[in-house]
Design a binder for these strands. Structure first.
Length: 406
DNA sequence: AGGTATTCACATGAAACTATTCTCTGAGTTAGG
DNA sequence: TAACTCAGAGAATAGTTTCATGTGAATACCTGT
């Protein structure tokens, strides 16, 4: 009986008209043929990079803009076009795109240079070599033949935050020592004040040209959504006013187009699972909640045990009273460590852990001064009750604590 | 009343330490000629 | 003698600990009226 039901399910599943025509169009790494509302920026970047086609060195560029304002997309698109022309005309040009945020790939000096070498077909061990040595190999490798190298560093702020600006300094300076090759840097960052941390020398040479990507406004997002939606969905699958609402959601979040697309995709997935023939507004609401829940649960499950114990202590304290401080958390945390058989970390470290959890958006921690009674962080939960309960049960399970709700 | 000094409870920074992973190198060992 | 094995030295990195210094405002303590 049961099996038959399942077969039926699969059969009807096949017969069902899918909502999606081409789901890829909503994926964040999808590059559309035409990029709307960024013509000006594309032209600017093209102008700056064009000298590469005459085998001159283009200026370094620094690009700022909030998340989801199309920075990466625009740069990659322009670079692709440039590369295509260069290839056609047999102009020696190499473009490397690196995302500095990706762990284990390009988030330290050593790894970034190693990754660059990998792009040139040289295998570099993940550890064991001195950094100078790797630089040396890099230097020799790229100087072997005459060419222009355009290096796109996405989310450079992450790199500088972790590894310092020495690398950028070396890269900008390396040009004067290279005989054949020339390196052009394109830095992409969503942190507008980030250059303040940089060494003035690096700052001036890196931002020979600066570009700012303004966030999309609601109308532009709507336009983009509609374009992508027409590729992604069959006609007549979206409810009236759906893209408008979706755009409005995203515009509220500082014009993040990526979020808008994700929202639309998840909503459609939910609709599909619902056996609905159309995506309705209610799906959009559910999608927003689901995205948030998935994000939090993923982060929580991925944290190390110590973070989980700290988070559990935070959740429990916060549920008992509001206005929770670092000291309270630490005491409870020590207790939980004891039960779970963990060696408790120092308060200094827990202070950092709390700050990191705050960064992840799971909790809110604000430094306040209680005057005579010291200075500390005031901690509140950043998620709604339903999610918090779910998080709590995951944590209890992970830590092997059987929980009695008293 | 108004002004200054104290004081608390951590925050924040810097440096040093630990553990892990990996390469490189050279000494010692082994097997085949 | 060439090939192989293995231990030890060095590196990079992540995660901590240790030590030191900083900090904002509620209180305590003065001061002069």
């Amino acid at each position: 009986m049961k099996e038959k039901g399942l077969v039926n399910f699969f059969e009807t599943y096949i017969q069902k008209q899918p909502l999606f025509k081409d789901k890829n169009a909503l994926q964040s790494n999808y590059t559309p043929e035409h990029i709307s509302h960024r013509d000006e920026q594309i032209q600017q970047i093209a102008n700056i990079l064009a000298p590469a086609l005459r085998e001159d060195k283009p200026s370094n560029i620094f690009i700022f803009g909030k998340t989801g304002s199309g920075k990466t997309l625009t740069v990659r698109y322009t670079a692709q076009q440039l590369c295509a022309v260069a290839q056609q005309k047999k102009i020696p040009l190499k473009i490397i795109y690196l995302n500095c945020k990706l762990k284990k790939l390009a988030d330290t000096e050593y790894r970034l240079v190693a990754q660059l070498l990998r792009e040139y077909g040289r295998e570099i061990p993940p550890t064991g070599l001195p950094t100078d040595e790797v630089y040396h190999i890099f230097f020799n490798t790229i100087d072997k033949e005459k060419h222009n190298l355009i290096l796109i560093l996405d989310e450079v702020d992450q790199l500088v935050g972790k590894a310092g600006d020495e690398l950028l300094y070396n890269l900008t300076r390396i040009n004067s020592e290279l005989k054949n090759a020339k390196i052009t840097l394109i830095g992409i960052s969503n942190d507008l004040v980030f250059t303040d941390q940089l060494d003035p020398r690096v700052k001036s040479s890196l931002s020979e040209e600066e570009l700012i990507f303004p966030p999309y406004n609601a109308l532009q997002i709507q336009d983009i959504l509609q374009q992508r939606a027409s590729q992604a969905f069959r006609p007549e699958t979206l409810d009236e006013g759906l893209t408008e609402k979706c755009a409005a959601y995203a515009a509220r979040e500082h014009g993040d187009a990526r979020r808008a697309l994700e929202l639309l995709r998840v909503a459609a997935e939910l609709a599909e699972r619902d056996n609905s023939t159309k995506v309705h507004i209610k799906h959009l609401d559910h999608a927003e909640e689901k995205i948030e829940r998935d994000r939090v649960l993923d982060i929580v499950a991925a944290q190390p045990k110590q973070f989980q114990a700290a988070l559990l202590a935070i959740i429990d304290s916060c549920q008992q009273k509001n206005g929770v401080f670092t000291g309270d958390i630490y005491q409870l945390y020590e207790k939980y460590c004891d039960i779970a058989g963990l060696r408790p970390l120092t308060q200094r470290r827990i202070s950092d852990v709390i700050a990191e959890l705050d960064m992840l958006g799971i909790i809110n921690a604000k430094v306040i001064s209680k005057g005579r009674y010291g200075r500390t962080r005031e901690i509140t939960l950043g998620t709604n009750d339903a999610i918090t309960q779910k998080v709590k049960s995951i944590l209890s399970e992970e830590l092997g604590l059987t929980w009695n709700t008293s």
